[in-house]
Design a protein around this nucleic acid. Structure first.
Lengths: 217, 217, 217, 217
DNA sequence: GATGAATGAGCTTTCATTCAT
DNA sequence: AATGAATGAAAGCTCATTCAT
């Protein structure tokens, strides 16, 4: 099961959709994302961005009035376009296929979303780093992401709980364990550049066992 | 079970070890840690540090010749003093108590290490953020931490595997799942300021189930 | 007595004189004048001008190659067209009507020129401000204006001095007192937005008394 | 009658009084005033200021966080220190000497205040130019200056009106004519660099006649 | 040791000006 | 003629670092 869409692809789509985003501005966004991921936002200068993008420094400021706006523009597609689409596509697929076991659910989540994380490690990295440091971004992101996960993942969890496929734990904990297990993989591969492929089956098994309902005594 | 040592205590020790303990330098370190945790290293100015520490800007440079050295000094106790001591104390305790079930191991890890993360959330936060961004720090940290975990945790894991208390997975994966589950909690509480206490039992159960050995057919 | 010519009218004339009248250029000049008057020349950007004029930024540069040329174009009608015409018309009228009392002269000056200042307060403001700051403009302006006043006003003053209607002061002083009294009114209304109409009679009386010849003992 | 205090002197006094204004900061203020007067605020760069002051560019920003604050600091002594002192000293002197004729009053005003304007032509020039262009500064200045003049000059005018030494015009008009006549001289000398000394007697006579009460029929 | 004024390299940002379309 | 994206020199400003006191 392949990733439906990477952030880069989303960039392209958004730009093409708007129709009016000049190519140089795309180069600026692409260069910004790459540099932010490599060095962090604060350690990246607008001069570096201009050089990498092959444009003049003034061009960086043509569409985005400040460096902060540039960061927002780089991260925006993730929260406003990609994340909703991914969550909804995922939910739709799960619902369509009427997963009735946690095995099926977890397999879907891991294979699908892990590949997504992998494909978008650049943006993920920028996002995680900045969320750790910027209160405003964090609140803005959580305000969008949390309800989205609640609306799309929680009903599925409730369903599986009803058929004894999941323990009677709070949904946010179950989600935390799933997401946490994946993020741990993301951070690890971000550190050590190891191939993700191998960990998939193990992770599925770990989660499947970990999220098994307690044996009804 | 209380934390054996917090970073603040470690600061004291490091200070004591280096002979003299200029109180102003202690204030500088404390202020730096707090500000780096709040705003990130790159977004913190030496002026802010001086103000919060109640010293002149020049004083910040008395002991540490650059801002980078200050970051190193803030993080050093963690990698050079706290982390080794913690891992070793933990291993010693485990060995001493001859844990023969993963339940006992996981309970010990979660209650003990989670409290530790909690107590040192400031340094943890600075550490995680900077490790994501600075290649040099990352390599340096991994070069120290990985062998340490390997030397102290892996033998215990092997032992438990031998008595069918853990599945026959690579040790680094088992460690990843345990650490990842804890770090996910750290990041979550870092984002939402929820009390950690409540999650303990659930986390133990999740890990215990997740790390159960596959039923030998 | 109405103003013979306002700057807006002068713009039209200058435009007509130069053959074609591109309406967009007219908009550019009008917008420039308004913005220079509101914010000063140096604080106004070509982007603001383009926006207010409803044209693209490049269009601003179609006729005027630099921003300085634009300032010159805004001020030019005043010194090259309006001022000469006004002074000469004034002189002609005075001569035609054979004013033989300073009362008649001052009344004519005040009612006529004060209305003129009022109608062209925008250009006046830009002119005064820039003359205070730009040495080159100042010299250029004085080189044109001073001789003009000398040629047209001084003979009339001499005439009135001859019939004891004016004191035997240097003409430049008499002119200074008259002009200064009017300019003071212009600056005041520019600051406080008060209606000019009311001050007319008082100003006439003040000047008439102030410029009375010393009683011949 | 000499000027009691020039702006430059006021600078010195304020600086000396505060005690804590380092010499380099004085150089910055002095250089700023000179350059603003020569070229206008907007046309002066912080680099020029640093060069003229003989300091590094960063030093310009040590005490004043923005260029605007520097302008405020340059003009502040005028409104907060010099203007009040001058108006009050003047009023005190007038009252002390019990002027009962407008001749005495006008002579005092002209000789005294004209010299003041002359001595402080630099600051005056910056002040006038910026008041023409900056709405905020203008309101702030008027809010201070107008009441001050009203409180100190108007009673004296009322007194002279009572003894038929001044016409029954609104005080603000009388003040306008006096101030306007002086400002006209200031602007003229600012343009042409002529010596002021010579115009004194003529100006006194002009004002004295202009402000004579209407002959009671 | 401690101070904080001073430094200046380098950053973000602005904006008059150009030019392919 | 008109457009507006692109330019890049130069402006305002920041801040880690130094050093005389």
């Amino acid at each position: 099961m392949a990733t439906e869409m990477s952030i880069q692809a989303a960039f392209q789509e958004v730009m093409a959709a708007s129709g009016e985003i000049p190519p140089k501005q795309q180069q600026v966004l692409t260069a910004s994302l790459a540099l932010f991921a490599e060095q962090g936002f604060a350690n990246t200068t607008t001069k570096q961005i201009a050089e990498r993008a092959g444009v003049a420094e003034g061009t960086v400021y043509r569409r985005y009035k400040t460096k902060d706006e540039l960061l927002a523009a780089v991260l925006a597609p993730f929260t406003t376009e990609v994340l909703p689409k991914l969550v909804k596509e995922f939910a739709a697929k799960v619902v369509r296929q009427k997963y009735t076991t946690r095995h099926a659910l977890i397999t879907a989540v891991i294979t699908d979303r892990l590949a997504f994380l992998q494909d978008n490690s650049q943006v993920m990295r920028v996002l995680v780093t900045e969320l750790l440091v910027r209160t405003d971004l964090r609140e803005q992101f959580l305000a969008r992401a949390v309800p989205m996960v609640q609306a799309n993942l929680y009903p599925i969890l409730d369903q599986l709980k009803a058929v004894q496929e999941l323990p009677d734990w709070p949904n946010d904990r179950i989600a935390q364990f799933m997401i946490g297990t994946m993020v741990s993989q993301f951070i690890r591969s971000s550190f050590t550049a190891e191939p993700v492929a191998t960990v998939g089956p193990l992770m599925i098994q770990f989660l499947e066992q970990g999220l098994a309902p307690e044996p009804t005594a």
